[in-house]
Write a protein that binds this DNA or RNA. Sequence first.
DNA 1: CCTTGACCTAGAGTTAGCTCTAGGTTGTAT
DNA 2: ATACAACCTAGAGCTAACTCTAGGTCAAGG
Lengths: 129, 129
Amino acid sequence: MNYSIGKFSQMMGVSIYTLRYYEKLGLIVPVRRDNGQRRYSENDVTWLQFIKRLKATGMPIKEIQTYAELRSNGDSTMPQRMEMLVIHRTALKEEIAKLQEHLENLDNKIDYYQCCLKGFSTVEFVERQ
Amino acid sequence: MNYSIGKFSQMMGVSIYTLRYYEKLGLIVPVRRDNGQRRYSENDVTWLQFIKRLKATGMPIKEIQTYAELRSNGDSTMPQRMEMLVIHRTALKEEIAKLQEHLENLDNKIDYYQCCLKGFSTVEFVERQ
DNA sequence: CCTTGACCTAGAGTTAGCTCTAGGTTGTAT
DNA sequence: ATACAACCTAGAGCTAACTCTAGGTCAAGG
């Protein structure tokens, strides 16, 4: 099975513009074309899902570009790719830890001020709930 | 105690450019000036720390701007500000959950491929460790 | 045959969030 | 008094990551 850019865009939740932009950057290049029109495969589905994951976890496009280049050079680049992923995982763990800390702090602030609010303007506050 | 923009920038780890930019946006406006030069207070220290926290947790500047405007209108805006923080907290929790899921997926991928690597190119992989 | 809709390319435009430059003023140490 | 660092403003410039426009091709339906 293969998909036109319109179908693929819809399935993946990525705009046609973005797909062509990613192709220009070498992130995702469909292997086939019919009369000049892109044909995306199942393989492209899983690959774009992975790209989206990398993006969602804050990897900059330049780095994804590097990864994609390694990938297109075949299985012999697996070690380097794994190295990149391991490094990225570490960064991600740190980011999560940092966010968790910020969340606690935010919780405390909210608790603190909701106490105060109860003191001097309960009505106002209750109205907004 | 109060600080010149240079001192404040250094203490807070925020560039002078950024401080002036934030001021233009109304995020942090030092109350005093001496001969036209900004003087930041202890109050500004805690406020900027909080701004940094909001930023680090992904709040866009426009929203921080709204918050700052409410803040500058005094205590009567506390309920609205708390509402903003509560909403932001929810978004942050979701973001953390999403990242955690991505992390698990990444872990699995790494595990999976490191198994393969052990099979067909241990040497290559060991070399890069 | 002709229109319509999905596709194509190259390149311009947009948004967020800074970052820097130019040209000028002020405070401090010799 | 004079150098020199730190400050000031207005506005231009930059990077990332898209997003859109203009002008064109091509296949299918009426």
